[in-house]
Design a protein around this nucleic acid. Sequence first.
DNA 1: AGCGATTTAATCGCACACGATATACATGTC
DNA 2: GACATGTATATCGTGTGCGATTAAATCGCT
Lengths: 155, 155
Amino acid sequence: MKNRRRDPSTPTPLNLGEFLCFAVYSANHAFNRVYQPLLRDLGLTYPQFIALVLLWAQDNQTVGELGQKLFLQSNTLTPMLKRLETLGYVRRTRDSADERQVRISLTEDGQKLQLLASDIVRRVRHATGLQNNQVEQLLDEISALRKALESHIAR
Amino acid sequence: MKNRRRDPSTPTPLNLGEFLCFAVYSANHAFNRVYQPLLRDLGLTYPQFIALVLLWAQDNQTVGELGQKLFLQSNTLTPMLKRLETLGYVRRTRDSADERQVRISLTEDGQKLQLLASDIVRRVRHATGLQNNQVEQLLDEISALRKALESHIAR
DNA sequence: AGCGATTTAATCGCACACGATATACATGTC
DNA sequence: GACATGTATATCGTGTGCGATTAAATCGCT
């Protein structure tokens, strides 16, 4: 039960190791670096891979739909999707019913990538060193954290 | 105990909500967005703030020392520290004993910022909606995750 | 039908982040 | 002391991210 006396003229020293935000920040970087060598052969970056995961689950989504799920806006997505188009993994076509919307659909090559994706995901999960139930628990906790932060942002 | 039959020609569908990496990725973004309005008045970005946290704990560190703690290299840090210098919060001076090293020291203005920092950190902690012991537990879990990922990268 | 408000993407400028490389300095070996 | 080796920082190019703005299409209201 220590109650150390401190010089009141200097603020409480902040220890970066105690920052939850920094733990999250550096864990995110670590994930990035684990994915990188696995994705290099496919010419993909980690965010691009995440976008493809969404498209494998549901093809032909609009830019806005993808952005809602990824928490990204068109200013980030549009250039990224254009790169995926250049790579030959997706097509970008205006929706004929609503010309404001751009629909992203997988090419045949883009669909084929999914065959490799499961293996990549498996490897990354292995790299976490966690059991399935631990992954689930941590995932729930971090998701709850994100939601709490977002509800705070909304105010 | 469902054991759905699947078409063996199509891969297992991947659900982004089950990706621990994505939970971490989006939680990191959420932190960023919570910090942003709090730091705007100081002209600081979130990574810049984190760098200052390190300098408040120990002034006059080298670029390399900061990079080791932030998991960043000079190609990221140098421009960022130059911006902090332009803002008038730090000075960049070559170490006279070893001219290869650049030492980063806080200006008077940079030191003063610490008075506001504790309040910002307190607000962000409040935004997480977590109790102190919950923060500690989650921090330990995420740090362990980062370490596991990094030890995997090292191989 | 007409027209302002809303929605959807795209564009621009800036700030990370990193791989690859360059440059200057320091160290060790002969 | 010279030269190879190693180290610390800086530079360059590319790819996210985001705030602010723009442009085009649609909606809603009268």
